[in-house]
Simulated scan of single mutants.
Amino acid sequence: MKILVTGATGNIGRKVVDHLLTMGATDVRVLTNDPRRAALPDRVEVISGYLRRLDSLPIAFEGVDRMYLAPTPDTVTEVLTLARTAGVQRVVDLSGEPESWWGSVTEAVETSGLEWTHLWPGDFMENARIWAKQIRDTGAVREPYPSTASAPIAMDDIAEVAATALLEDEHAGKSYGLAGPEILTRTELVRQLGVALGRDIPFIPVSRDEAVQAFRSEMGDTASWYVDNVLGGMVENTLAPTGSVPEIIGRPATTFARWAADHVGDFAEAATQ
Rank of each mutant, 00 (worst) to 15 (best):
R90A: 08
L167N: 03
T254Q: 11
R191I: 00
V91Y: 00
L57I: 12
L239G: 00
A223Q: 03
G122C: 10
V141L: 07
P252E: 13
A154D: 14
M67D: 01
G49I: 03
R37D: 05
G103M: 01
E107M: 12
A154H: 10
A60C: 05
G49M: 06
V109W: 00
W102A: 15
L51M: 14
D42H: 10
D93Y: 00
A154Y: 09
A70V: 12
E107I: 08
F267A: 09
G198N: 13
V91K: 00
H19S: 11
T242F: 07
V5R: 04
S224F: 02
L57W: 07
D156A: 15
Q192L: 15
S244Q: 14
D157Y: 06
P146E: 09
P205G: 11
V76T: 12
H171M: 07
G96M: 02
V190R: 10
G13Q: 07
A149C: 12
L94W: 06
A163S: 11
G220I: 07
D55F: 04
S100H: 05
A70E: 10
K133P: 04
R142T: 14
D228W: 06
S147E: 15
V245D: 02
P41E: 09
F124K: 05
P181C: 11
D34F: 04
G220Y: 04
V92Y: 06
A60D: 05
P58C: 08
T72I: 11
L114F: 08
A70N: 14
L189K: 13
V227W: 01
V235Y: 01
G177L: 12
N11D: 12
S95E: 01
T111W: 02
A270Y: 08
I153G: 01
S244V: 02
L82P: 00
T81P: 00
F203M: 14
G49T: 05
V30L: 01
D156E: 15
P35I: 04
G198E: 06
G103Y: 00
G122Y: 08
S95N: 10
E269N: 03
L184T: 06
I12L: 09
Q89I: 03
R129Y: 14
T164Q: 03
P181K: 10
A240Q: 13
A159D: 02
A163G: 10
V76G: 01
L178V: 08
M23G: 02
K2H: 10
G13P: 02
T72D: 13
E78R: 14
D65N: 15
W131A: 12
A132M: 10
E269S: 11
P202H: 06
D74Y: 05
V5D: 01
Y50I: 00
M219C: 05
A25Y: 09
E110H: 12
T22G: 03
R90H: 14
I130L: 13
V88W: 01
A162P: 02
I248Y: 07
R43F: 00
S112G: 10
I130K: 02
A261L: 11
G113Q: 09
A261G: 14
V235L: 14
A261Q: 12
V44K: 01
F61K: 05
L21V: 05
V28N: 02
T9G: 15
F256T: 02
A149G: 06
R37H: 12
V64H: 03
